[in-house]
């Protein structure tokens, strides 16, 4: 991109790469060996406990109870729902290309997830079917997230191993929070201030 350079004869790219090459001429290091692993199933009780530690709401339920639990969690709030959710949500708004401002006027969102992490109480969305584009689970103030028990893996390496980095990923551990005032955690800043997780099965 010559347009961004300073008009010198050597491009910034070539010069940075040359400096890197010279600086590392004598450097050697072997990456630590690692065995490839199959993601291990996680302890669902531990997952639920650790999600709750972040002051999220966590409920366990059977597959036939999910729609009733979603309705109860919404408690009359209007929710946007992505394609492929697979559950009926009364009074919901479909995501037909809503703008950020439109989303800001909607109370809640209901999504599925891709993976749950037992050790850290984390939910990962890869924004595939039933999860919606990234803005959907961000702008509304209440996020109801349905995680199947068989989606819970043991720990962070298991989660990384089961995810596709070509997709955008959002790792969610509790509601939006900050530690910026006296380094103490306070819930409720820009992301959803309420995270309601339904663990199914």
């Amino acid at each position: 991109m010559a347009a961004y350079g300073r008009g010198s004869l050597v491009s910034a790219r070539d010069e940075v790469l040359r400096r890197v090459r010279e600086a590392t001429a004598s450097a050697t290091a072997t990456p630590p060996a690692r065995e490839s692993r199959e993601p291990r199933p996680g302890d669902v009780d531990r997952f639920a406990e650790r999600v709750a530690d972040y002051k999220a709401v966590v409920e366990r339920c059977g597959p036939d109870e999910v729609e009733a639990r979603i309705a109860a969690a919404l408690d009359g709030a209007v929710a946007v729902v992505p394609d492929g959710l697979g559950y009926a949500v009364p009074g919901s708004v479909p995501d037909d290309g809503l703008s950020a401002t439109d989303l800001d006027g909607i109370d809640a969102v209901v999504t599925l997830a891709r993976v749950g992490v037992a050790e850290t109480g984390t939910i990962v969305l890869d924004h595939g079917p039933g999860q919606g584009r990234r803005a959907l689970s961000l702008v509304p103030d209440l996020h109801v997230c349905v995680v199947r028990a068989d989606q819970v893996v043991a720990d962070v390496p298991d989660a990384v191993a089961s995810l596709d980095p070509a997709r955008p990923l959002t790792w969610i551990s509790g509601p939006s929070a900050t530690s910026d005032i006296e380094l103490d955690r306070v819930e409720g800043v820009h992301g959803p201030r309420t995270l309601h997780v339904l663990v199914v099965g």
């Binding site: 990234r134 955008p168 990923l169 929070a177």
Partner: peptide, 18 residues
């Protein structure tokens, strides 16, 4: 914390998202 509230990863442009 065991995990921070949000981690985002993305690889270039995702059509229709972001």
């Amino acid at each position: 914390e065991r995990m921070n509230p949000y981690t985002s990863t993305w690889s270039g442009v995702t059509p229709g998202d972001g």
